[in-house]
């Protein structure tokens, strides 16, 4: 399951979907909207995606992670649109036979996604709004 969506996700539903008999460990990561950023109060975030490219990049990241780690299932959901404090942003769920590979693969998916997934966030504070731009340059996956 790879999805870029405006809708919230159900962690339980996605975990149930990737559970199979050969899986002994599931590791998940959930990114949520923080109420503070660099000492400033944050009212909301807005996420914009180049959706067609983002889906392709998710497929690349998933394929590369399957090549590097001994894991069985990878699900990634990234939300876009306007999100308020404590809203879910991102869900990564990795299923594997053993926990060690699942933890490593989940971390790997997250780090690759932060470098290459064409999604951008704009922070809104009570005083201003500004784009957050990543530090790395998108060419690793």
């Amino acid at each position: 399951m790879l999805e870029i969506t405006r809708d919230d996700f159900s962690i339980d539903e996605i975990v149930q979907k990737i559970k199979t008999e050969d899986i002994g460990a599931i590791v998940s990561f959930i990114g949520i909207v923080r109420g503070k950023s660099n000492g400033k109060n944050v009212n909301k975030l807005e996420f914009e995606a180049y959706k067609k490219m983002a889906i392709l990049q998710l497929k690349n990241i998933r394929a590369e992670t399957f090549r590097k780690f001994n894991v069985n299932q990878i699900a990634i959901v990234h939300r876009i649109g306007s999100l308020k404090v404590s809203d879910n942003i991102l869900l990564i769920v990795v299923g594997a036979t053993h926990r060690d590979e699942a933890f490593k693969a989940c971390r790997h998916v997250l780090e690759q996604l932060k470098k290459t997934l064409p999604i951008w966030k704009k922070e809104f504070t009570p005083e201003e709004s500004y784009w957050i731009e990543g530090e790395t340059h998108g060419k690793d996956a």
């Binding site: 996420f47 991102l90 932060k114 997934l117 990543g134």
Partner: peptide, 10 residues
């Protein structure tokens, strides 16, 4: 072709 800044999702 698409022009954009460094990504900041996640």
């Amino acid at each position: 072709v698409a022009f954009f800044p460094p990504v900041s999702g996640g």
